[in-house]
């Protein structure tokens, strides 16, 4: 009898402790997702409250399908996500392999490669914008020296601008991927590698047949986290290019922001935001199918 009473008390306490956290997450994360879908079914113009907020069904979505900027924006986003994520995980793996070995000053090195991750993205954006500047920039000087006539305005050329945004993102976030892979590497017992080396396996063979398969779950986690984060790219675009030139860097999160808050089309912008959400959902379901079982098994532990 006393036992069940403590059980019940414990359960009550558990819900009491969880409730504030769940309430916050429901009110300001789950509800907004639903609410933004509701908003997307209305015509809402912030500057013209006199128009009211009429229900227009899927009208915003019809416009979205016919909007060439939205289409190119979706394409730019997918290119950005795919290229930056792959580069970050690849580079992160190399970093992790280097940091896994023991050498003097390893702690300092780890801290140093973490610096880009810790820098505010706005600061990193301004930094790259200045380095890529057409007149005072470091890059032009390193490439062309005193030949001022060859200096280029990197952020004014569509291809280079997108490359610049991707590079800045890779610079900033590869260390995060590296940390996750490194944590995976450190769960591999050293003896396995040493035994293989004694059996005459070369470094590449050991990496390919031992390390890589064992670290694959960590790689998958890094890939998932980086992909989801790449869909959210905003600060770099806002500061470095404002979506230009010619929409070459106009990623969806920036386009949605512009529609909603700069131009005041709250309803249409919400349709864009729902599209972003659906894309992220689709990609995460895809990942779940590919690697999910491993991750879920870890979670139940």
């Amino acid at each position: 009898m006393a036992l069940t009473a403590t059980r019940r008390g414990e359960r009550l306490l558990a819900w009491g402790l969880l409730l504030p956290c769940l309430a916050a997450v429901c009110a300001f994360a789950f509800w907004p997702i639903v609410y933004s879908f509701v908003l997307s079914l209305h015509r809402i113009v912030l500057g013209l409250p006199g128009l009211g907020e009429p229900f227009i069904g899927l009208g915003n979505y019809a416009r979205l399908l016919a909007d060439p900027t939205a289409r190119s924006s979706a394409a730019v986003t997918l290119v950005f996500v795919a290229v930056s994520t792959l580069l970050e995980v690849a580079l992160g793996t190399l970093m992790a392999l280097a940091l896994d070995k023991s050498f003097r000053g390893r702690g300092l090195v780890r801290a140093a490669v973490l610096v880009p991750w810790a820098i505010p993205t706005v600061v990193a954006s301004q930094m790259w914008r200045f380095i890529l500047n057409d007149r005072y920039g470091l890059l032009n000087w390193l490439l062309f020296g005193d030949q001022v006539a060859s200096y280029r305005a990197w952020l004014a050329e569509p291809g280079w601008a997108l490359a610049a945004i991707i590079s800045a993102d890779v610079w900033k976030t590869s260390a995060f991927a590296a940390l996750i892979v490194l944590a995976g590497l450190q769960t591999i017992p050293r003896e396995i590698n040493e035994a293989a080396a004694l059996d005459g396996a070369g470094p590449w063979q050991r990496f390919r047949h031992l390390t890589l398969p064992l670290v694959l779950p960590a790689l998958a986690v890094a890939l998932v986290f980086r992909t989801m984060d790449a869909f959210r790219v905003f600060d770099l675009v806002f500061v470095m290019t404002q979506g230009g030139p010619a929409n070459a860097t106009n990623v969806l999160q920036f386009y949605g922001y512009k529609k909603m808050f700069a131009e005041g089309f709250m309803g249409y912008g919400s349709a864009v935001s729902v599209m972003v959400f659906v894309m992220v959902l689709a990609v995460s379901l895809l990942y779940l199918r590919l690697v999910g079982r491993r991750l879920l098994r870890g979670e139940e532990r």
């Binding site: 300001f28 789950f30 907004p32 997702i33 959210r232 905003f234 999160q253 922001y257 808050f261 919400s270």
Partner: peptide, 17 residues
């Protein structure tokens, strides 16, 4: 899941609230 939501999907509603 919450940590994976794109901010833009939360922005409009949170702003209105």
């Amino acid at each position: 899941l919450v940590s994976m939501f794109p901010q833009i999907s939360l922005a409009g509603p949170i702003w209105r609230m």
